[in-house]
């Protein structure tokens, strides 16, 4: 399961660009900061967790169900 902290996310999208399986997408969902929070496609996720490592803001967590 992918969870994104809206409090911490600054909307850089590096997780989206790094994701090899397109489990994350740029979305129109805007957080209180006024930046776009990535859209999650759970089914596409292969749990490589590259997004967790690249996130500069500790905002994304990938966990097994």
């Amino acid at each position: 399961m992918i969870r994104i902290s809206e409090e911490y996310c600054k909307g850089c999208g590096y997780c989206v660009f790094a994701c090899p399986t397109d489990a994350l997408k740029i979305s129109n969902k805007i957080n209180f900061r006024g930046v776009s929070i990535p859209l999650i496609d759970e089914k596409a996720c292969k749990m490589c967790r590259l997004c967790e490592m690249i996130c500069p803001d500790f905002a994304i967590v990938v966990e097994e169900e």
Binding site: E7, K10, C12, Y14, M53, I54, C55, P56, D57, F58
Partner: peptide
């Protein structure tokens, strides 16, 4: 490892410093 009171960081969106801290 992180001081909660200091988060979220002062770094700009897209700044790579946080990724380095993470690594």
């Amino acid at each position: 490892y992180i001081k909660k009171a200091m988060m979220p960081s002062i770094l700009c969106a897209g700044c790579g410093n946080g990724t380095v801290l993470n690594a």
